[in-house]
Simulated assay, not measured.
Amino acid sequence: MVALVGRPNVGKSTLLNALIGYRLSIVTPRPHTTRHRILGIATRPEGQILYVDTPGLHRGAKHAMNRSLNRAAHQAIAEVDVAVQVVEAGRWGDEDAAVYAALGERAVPRLLAVNKVDDLRDKAQLLPFVAGVVAQHPFDEVYFVSALKRQGLDALEQGILARLPQRAPLYGEEEITDRSERFLAAELVREQLMLRLQDELPYATTVEIEQFQDRADGVAEIHAVIWVEREGQKAIVIGAGGERLKAIGSGARKTMERLFERRVFLRLWVKVREAWTDDEAALRQFGYTD
């Protein structure tokens, strides 16, 4: 098993999707988009790789939600055979150093994936940047990649395969995750919330699937509740005349149909549960568990 770890917004989810060749983890420009450990399965002739996309490790975890995200990331590190720390080309800060320190909890191979190299205008900066990083934070190997443009991934994958223990495959060749369609449906609605809502509101929302069933006509009927923390937030999510909620539902439904490979009938409701992000019982209800 391979953990993809890093501070928020370095491209871990985009990298996971690129490595398995499937759009599994939701991706938005916002930090803290990933809230759960996501297992992605890549089966190759040389072997099967189980990638774990983790929430971004961050400091100042004041709320129960933030502590839950950090716990999920730390637990993923504790279970893996190889750790890949993802950083942004040209950027290494205190949060990156904190992620490196967290990797010290396990004596496993550490690989450094320098992502977004295509965004760095002066490529001559790459080698001095990496030299400065590894001088104080040694890694077994360094790889330069662009997850978005799928560059440098073959070398990274081969480096991972060379360091994994030999075991029998745990999953079939066609399987890409252990997550259910029900879970993925909730994530795809939340992705639209992250993309379409401004400021801090997306972080006050979560999604719970109340019904997921395949009808006799082959359509997947999905009923989902969008939970917010205040009545004012509910009005914002719904929008004038319900237009924003319709747009969220339409965007999520189209993505679900591509992922699930069948038609989807999606119904959304918006409900209020005050301060759910700092309520341990609510977090368990909504699936934020270790």
Rank of each mutant, 00 (worst) to 15 (best):
D94L: 13
L39G: 06
I77Q: 10
V99C: 07
A147L: 00
V5N: 02
R230I: 04
E280M: 00
D278A: 02
E175R: 15
F212K: 05
S13E: 01
E157G: 12
L15D: 00
G218H: 11
N70M: 02
I222D: 09
Q151M: 03
E280S: 05
E221M: 07
T14I: 00
R106G: 08
M1E: 12
T289D: 01
K149I: 00
G241P: 06
Y171M: 12
R7Q: 01
Q198V: 11
W92I: 11
V270G: 02
E88L: 02
R44C: 02
P128M: 06
V130W: 09
E173C: 03
R262V: 13
R91P: 06
T205R: 06
G11H: 02
R37C: 10
A64F: 00
A162I: 07
Q151V: 05
L164I: 14
L103Q: 09
G249D: 07
A235D: 05
L148G: 00
G90Y: 11
P202N: 07
D154K: 09
D53K: 03
A282F: 04
G241V: 06
A61R: 13
A281H: 11
L148F: 06
I248E: 08
L19A: 00
T177I: 12
G232A: 05
M194V: 07
R35A: 02
S146Q: 02
Q151I: 04
R267V: 08
W92Y: 14
Q213Y: 09
E274W: 03
R71P: 02
A73Y: 07
I236P: 09
A224Y: 12
R44D: 06
R179C: 10
W92F: 15
N9S: 06
L126K: 10
S13H: 03
G11T: 02
K254W: 14
V207C: 07
E229Y: 03
R190G: 10
E231R: 08
E231Q: 09
N66P: 01
R91A: 10
P109I: 10
D118V: 03
K12N: 00
A101N: 13
R71T: 12
E191S: 05
N115W: 03
L188I: 15
E174T: 15
A98H: 12
N70S: 04
V99W: 12
D96R: 08
A275T: 08
T289C: 03
K123Q: 15
G152I: 04
D118P: 05
E88R: 12
L283I: 07
V84P: 11
P109G: 08
G239N: 02
G6Y: 04
L39N: 08
H63S: 12
D279V: 03
V80N: 11
L19K: 01
L259T: 13
G172D: 14
H32E: 05
E173L: 14
N66M: 08
A131S: 15
I236R: 11
H36N: 11
